[in-house]
Simulated scan of single mutants.
Amino acid sequence: MRSNSFEGMACSIAGVLDAVGDRWAMLILRDLSLGLSRYEELRKSTGITHATLSDRLRHLEEHELIERRQYQTGPDRYEYILTRRGWDVVLVIQALAQVGDKWAVAGDAGPPLRFVNRNSGRPVKVALVDEKSGEVVRLRDVRPQAGPGADDLVRWRLSKFTA
């Protein structure tokens, strides 16, 4: 069961979490990014119950992360496609996979999924880069700073930052 909405909170992270909804939705988005698009494919891949899958698909569609397209009539059947917003979340999914690989959550067999450059075939990873120069920045060299949309609560959180 999902918690109450984060609507109205001045936090980009909370806004994305609200749009995604929960961990099942992340797995659905993962599968859509891998090319699965039909209800039964998503159910087989995740092992999710019918009720939960239907609820999460509806939630993701309402938050414009996916689009439902009819591919058959009589009976009507639909497939689910990532929207631009949905593809934006794939970056988060890739980051989660990268952390999971670092933690070796799949065990000694190694990462169950790799992301590679389509052109070179070489592995890619999520990294922080300087917005202007494109240079990679180490996490320990990053610090949070109030943005133009910061409210008093954001400024209070930042006042507690010590790293």
Rank of each mutant, 00 (worst) to 15 (best):
M1C: 02
S3K: 13
S3F: 15
N4M: 10
E7N: 14
M9R: 14
A10H: 14
A10G: 01
V16T: 06
A19W: 04
G21T: 09
L27P: 00
D31I: 09
D31H: 05
L34A: 09
L36A: 03
S37K: 07
R38T: 05
Y39G: 01
E41W: 09
T46Q: 04
G47H: 06
T49R: 03
H50M: 04
A51L: 09
A51S: 04
T52K: 13
L53W: 14
L53P: 00
L57D: 02
H59D: 00
E61Q: 13
E62Y: 10
E64G: 07
L65W: 02
E67I: 14
R69P: 03
T73R: 11
P75Y: 11
P75L: 08
R77E: 08
R77C: 13
R77S: 13
Y80Q: 00
T83K: 01
T83L: 01
R85S: 10
R85D: 07
G86V: 09
W87F: 09
L91C: 06
Q94F: 08
L96K: 09
A97D: 15
A97M: 15
A97Q: 15
Q98V: 08
V99N: 09
G100Q: 09
V105F: 01
D108T: 08
N117K: 06
S120Y: 15
R122H: 08
K125C: 05
L128P: 02
L128W: 03
G134Y: 07
V136R: 06
R138N: 12
L139A: 14
D141A: 01
V142T: 01
R143C: 04
R143G: 07
G149E: 14
L153A: 07
R155Y: 14
W156F: 11
W156E: 12
K160R: 12
A163P: 05
